[in-house]
Simulated scan of single mutants.
Amino acid sequence: MHDRQALDDSLRQLMHHTDTPGALTADALAERLSDALAAARSVLGVDGTGLMMLDERGELCVVGSSDPPSALLELAQQRTGVGPGVDCVRRDRTVTVDDLGAGGAYPRLWEFMVEADGDVLPFRGVASAPILISGRAIGTLNVMTAAAHRWTRERIEAVEAYANVLAVLLRLGAAAQPGTIAGRLLPDED
């Protein structure tokens, strides 16, 4: 469980220097996104984090993860086309799963993870928060727990706060580097 002061401090640190025009190069953006995933993992006390974004074809692709088991979950969602991250982007809202292995909404996802790497314990608890730009989801922040987990409103709001930071970073990266992946994926301003 996170504490509110640690969350506030973490979010403030991640947003440090975001008001400097042109300072977010493609390399700096990648580093800041990685920092945000690591901070979310640490402050929220979860076992893994992952970032997926829509590509030019409107398909989710893995952009980053905190560790190999997190990468497996992201890859499983990408390959099967099902999962809380997929539904999160389709619905433009946060999706939580207390226990992926309990035979609920995503048995195909669970089977894929177990078959892909039986040595890696698949994550059971997942919260997927949309990364919203201009009111629509262009990606998802996924946070995972190794054990089944009941997601409280407070924890969901904290995950959503990190997703909002990722949205700001992506918007700044697109503005500074229009040719980057962020610049290609983000909608033009009307």
Rank of each mutant, 00 (worst) to 15 (best):
T140F: 06
L7T: 03
V95E: 04
G179R: 08
L109Y: 05
L44G: 03
R90L: 14
V43N: 05
A158V: 03
T25F: 15
E74T: 15
I131H: 01
G104I: 10
M53R: 15
G81S: 04
G104E: 12
V126S: 00
R153L: 09
V126A: 00
S10K: 14
P122G: 09
P68F: 01
A30R: 11
C88I: 00
A147F: 04
A71D: 10
F123W: 05
R79P: 08
A105Y: 02
M1C: 02
G58Y: 10
E160A: 15
D87Q: 03
R41W: 02
F123E: 14
L169E: 08
A6K: 02
P130Q: 03
M144V: 06
D190F: 13
G48F: 00
E154M: 12
T140R: 11
D117M: 07
N164D: 09
P130M: 00
I156Q: 00
E189C: 14
D55A: 09
D188T: 08
V46A: 04
M52A: 06
A6C: 10
I138W: 01
R12Y: 15
R184E: 06
V165F: 06
G58H: 09
E31S: 05
M1A: 13
L185I: 08
H17D: 12
V62S: 05
G101T: 10
A174R: 03
P21I: 10
L24G: 01
G85S: 05
A146S: 13
R90A: 10
E157L: 09
A36C: 09
G85N: 02
T20L: 03
A71E: 12
D8L: 08
N142L: 00
S66M: 13
A40S: 06
H16V: 15
R136C: 07
V143M: 02
E111T: 15
A102E: 07
T145E: 05
L141W: 01
A137R: 07
V165I: 03
E189Q: 10
P69E: 03
A30Y: 06
G125K: 00
